[in-house]
């Protein structure tokens, strides 16, 4: 079996994003965690690109790395959290509790792995779906869900707007 350039990129980027995600969720300092998260997102974007979805890959970079992480960083700065180091909250000697989610997650992976290995042979179908195909799908077939997606954002906006506003008479809370 020969490995193509795509395979190499996929496995490399995939491994990279797994490592950086692991780092992201285990850091104690939120800023480092976010930096790792950005790395992981870039890795995933590369994977998505390799999988033949260039539009989604660019969105991944723009929205996740650009917007989501920046928003996170803003909040961390506003809360002045960088110095706060909250750990996993498990006291020494009671790490048994950590084993529970570990076992749980491993068993989920195993279950789905069993499912994956089911009856599927190795398929090598490979489709590149460019931005124009996605755009057509979005704006023709899925026009109603797209409009509803705007409602979803509106709901979030209204809530965030109301909550973030300073209380007029009660002062800051």
């Amino acid at each position: 079996m020969t490995y193509s350039m795509f395979d190499v990129v996929f496995y490399g980027a995939g491994a990279f994003s797994v490592v950086t995600t692991t780092l992201a969720i285990t850091r104690t300092n939120p800023v480092y965690a976010l930096l790792n998260f950005v790395m992981s997102i870039l890795g995933i974007a590369l994977v998505i690109f390799v999988l033949g979805a260039p539009f989604a890959a660019s969105l991944e970079v723009i929205v996740y790395a650009g917007a989501v992480v920046v928003l996170f960083l803003f909040v961390v700065m506003m809360l002045n959290l960088a110095h706060l180091k909250t750990d996993f909250g498990v006291k020494r000697g009671r790490s048994v509790r950590l084993a529970v989610p570990g076992v749980l997650v491993i068993s989920i992976i195993i279950e789905i792995g069993i499912a994956f290995s089911g009856r599927f042979g190795k398929e090598t179908t490979y489709h590149i779906i460019g931005p124009s195909a996605v755009g057509r799908q979005l704006l023709v077939a899925d026009i109603i869900p797209i409009e509803l997606g705007s409602m979803l954002l509106l709901a979030a906006l209204l809530g965030a707007f109301h909550l973030a506003r300073l209380s007029p008479e009660r002062g800051r809370q």
Binding site: T2, V18, P101, I109, T124
Partner: peptide, 25 residues
């Protein structure tokens, strides 16, 4: 390209599991 769908799907599942671990711990 002989990338099958199983490998990237597994990557997604692993990332999901990592997120779940983070959420619980």
């Amino acid at each position: 390209i002989n990338l099958s769908w199983q490998a990237p799907a597994s990557l997604a599942i692993i990332l999901f599991a990592l997120g779940l671990i983070g959420l619980i711990t």
